[in-house]
Computed example of a mutant assay.
Amino acid sequence: MRRRLLPAALLLPLALLVSACGGNSAASTSSGGGTDGKGSLTLNVGDQKGGSEAVLRAAGELDDLDYRIKWSTFSSGPPLLEAVNAKAVDIGGVGNTPPVFAAGAGSKITVVAAWHGTSQGEAVLVPNGSKLTKPEQLKGKSVAVAQGSSAHFQLIASLKEAGLTLGDIKVKYLQPADALAAFTSGKVDAWAVWDPYTSQILNGKQGRVLTTGDGVVNGLSFQVAAPGALADQDKSAAIKDYLDRLRRAQDWVYDHPEEWAKVWAKDTGLPYEVALASVKQTNASRVPVAVDEPLIKSEQEIADAFTALKLIPDKVDFSKYVDDRFNGDLPPSTTAPRLYKES
């Protein structure tokens, strides 16, 4: 069967879903989800569609909870962290960039857990007919990217590797749905984006990879908690249990990529082929790692880059926004991702 790309109009809900990687988002609404577990303690968890709740449920990790989890679903990472700052949410999952922007705004947030995955899904794409074959050739070309997103930093880092800066290209700040339309209509020369968009373009045979973030960006994702929840002994214990379940669920994803892709596709509206490609390339690769000094240094580099661009007003000390109490015997944050191998 011919694989088909979703029309741009249908991608708007997906854009809101995967803009978890973004530092800016016009979408700031949240809606209450269901409640799992039993007991007198309730852990308020912020989530995104197709995120933690879906993977925990698919992996059977929401069974036998001796506390309640009340889910709130957010359209992206920034409003989720706004809710953490407002004490409406105790903990929630985001990509590597929203915590930097939240820290830049002086928000009361604390990174308590991390996962390290590949950055193959973070890519600069070019149309199939493009004459561009290496990043150095982007000089003077137009590149679409979501401002303040993980792809934004990946673009900055990839240009630096090629001896270029943002000033050497024509940056078009576009959210994914608009960027897709510009890319497929030839209005931009390249598009810096993340999975599942990368997998969607490749599976739809609409373009090819010019360069990826592998070896250029940190490939980290986080669980971020409210300091008040961490100061509560009972909630802190529930957070530890919740993180243990998430880590086991990630192991399940690695061992059951097809099963998870079916769940993810149904939850997000992605075509199954795209979901499976994204799972194998990106999602299944994630390894639970420690919140440690190399992680802080890596996030500090992101913060400094955006401060230099004046997208963050003042210098951020990222070390003030982490807590390593849940590290246990986890490997360092520099641990290599698990590359999925076909059976």
Rank of each mutant, 00 (worst) to 15 (best):
Y321K: 11
D36T: 12
Y272P: 03
K108P: 04
Q281W: 02
L81C: 10
A26Q: 11
S52G: 13
G148M: 07
A20W: 05
L80C: 02
Q120V: 13
S185F: 10
T97E: 15
W115Y: 14
G167P: 03
V224I: 08
Q175P: 03
E136V: 14
A284W: 06
V291A: 02
Q223S: 01
S130A: 10
G228H: 01
G46V: 07
S30I: 09
Y254S: 09
A162C: 09
D64G: 02
I302R: 02
D317C: 09
A179M: 07
V84F: 05
K280I: 08
G129W: 00
K172A: 10
L14D: 06
G32C: 07
G140E: 02
R57P: 00
A277P: 08
L174W: 04
A249T: 04
G121A: 12
A182T: 05
A225Y: 05
P78V: 01
A15D: 14
Q300H: 07
S221M: 09
G219F: 10
V112C: 09
V316M: 06
G167V: 05
K131D: 09
D323P: 00
V291Q: 00
P271R: 00
Q120P: 06
V263D: 04
R286I: 08
A229P: 06
W194D: 09
T97P: 09
A114K: 04
P99K: 05
